[in-house]
Design a protein around this nucleic acid. Sequence first.
DNA 1: CAATATATAGACCAACTGGTCTATAAATCG
DNA 2: CGATTTATAGACCAGTTGGTCTATATATTG
Lengths: 204, 204
Amino acid sequence: MSHQTPAQLPRGRPRSFDMEAAVERAMGVFWSRGYHATALPDLLRATKLSRGSLYAAFGDKHSLFLRALDRYIADALTRMDIELDPRSEPVDGLRAYLAGYVDRTSGANGRRGCLLVAAAMELAGQDSEVSRRIASFFKAMEARVADTLSRAKAAGKLADGVEPSSAARILVCFVEGLRVVGKTAPARITSQATVDALLDRFIK
Amino acid sequence: MSHQTPAQLPRGRPRSFDMEAAVERAMGVFWSRGYHATALPDLLRATKLSRGSLYAAFGDKHSLFLRALDRYIADALTRMDIELDPRSEPVDGLRAYLAGYVDRTSGANGRRGCLLVAAAMELAGQDSEVSRRIASFFKAMEARVADTLSRAKAAGKLADGVEPSSAARILVCFVEGLRVVGKTAPARITSQATVDALLDRFIK
DNA sequence: CAATATATAGACCAACTGGTCTATAAATCG
DNA sequence: CGATTTATAGACCAGTTGGTCTATATATTG
């Protein structure tokens, strides 16, 4: 097209704060406290924005939450694309993927929980915007895992009778369940052993 | 001891409502809406109690929530004790147990979610009373599943190399993950197929 | 410079929060 | 009966909620 940049620069004082950094800070608050338990002053403190700036930039609490959730999801998918990179060994990828969950569900990380799972439980029932995003994330995660399992199967690394698509659904449920259990029982050794035992059932 | 019943009957007007029924109704509200999103008027409407009666009987919102959570947990354990009854076939028991989760994570049931998982994600990080109850529930569930798996193993019904205790942890994570995914993707056929595929890896 | 746009702090708002209290009716007892 | 206890409806409370608005400073443009 003819003009990628706006035809003329905006007139007045330019925005002087980093919107993405603000979303990231807000994400951190929602992540630690949940949606309803997060009050405006918490967000103002974390983002270091005034009420006016926050509302001008993001609209309202709910919109800001959606941006935080989108950011959280994008980060998760980016991470998976690295762990499950098609150019490396699929079984190594799966191990890395599961090791990440062991890490995120152990100790303090485990107690902090998962913004996405918390949003699913707290909001998905009543909030279709949230619901859509979560459903699409699970689909995307499942697709990546299924693809990796297919590559493992082609390489003869899967146990007999393992079907990539249903195994992928099993793994997705398992890791999300790890996040739930990790909220109150975040013992690293146990999680790691459980993950190893699970993988043992699927990998030759 | 000498006196199981109070030495003398109370003097005045007796309590005229059923406290357990009130707890159950309150449980229903917390279950559908979560803790923070449940307001006092919601609880008054559901229990059909006046503010005064509710506070006299239960203390405050948080105490009532704990009673509702206790009730929810007791129901779940009772159900498991039936499904995994030691007098019946362990493999049948496991199938019944998992079938129950398929049911509870499908369609409208799935969208409603799980009071316990919601409480874990919303409150466990900040509320030690809630946290204790949830941790102890997961332990109790895992013990029952592990016991059933041990019986299955003794009967030669487990696949080679399956160890009951780690397999029980896998199953617990899996079913809790089903509850999370079921919030937004509550397709019965899929859940059932996933459960079947999982059991296939563990049962001979 | 004037015009424009954005930043800030904080006053302000109606609505709602969980929780207490009062007044009064009803149900049980000796 | 009178004493006691619990029920109810609803007034009342201080604190918080998400959200708007005003006043003012500041940074950019032509």
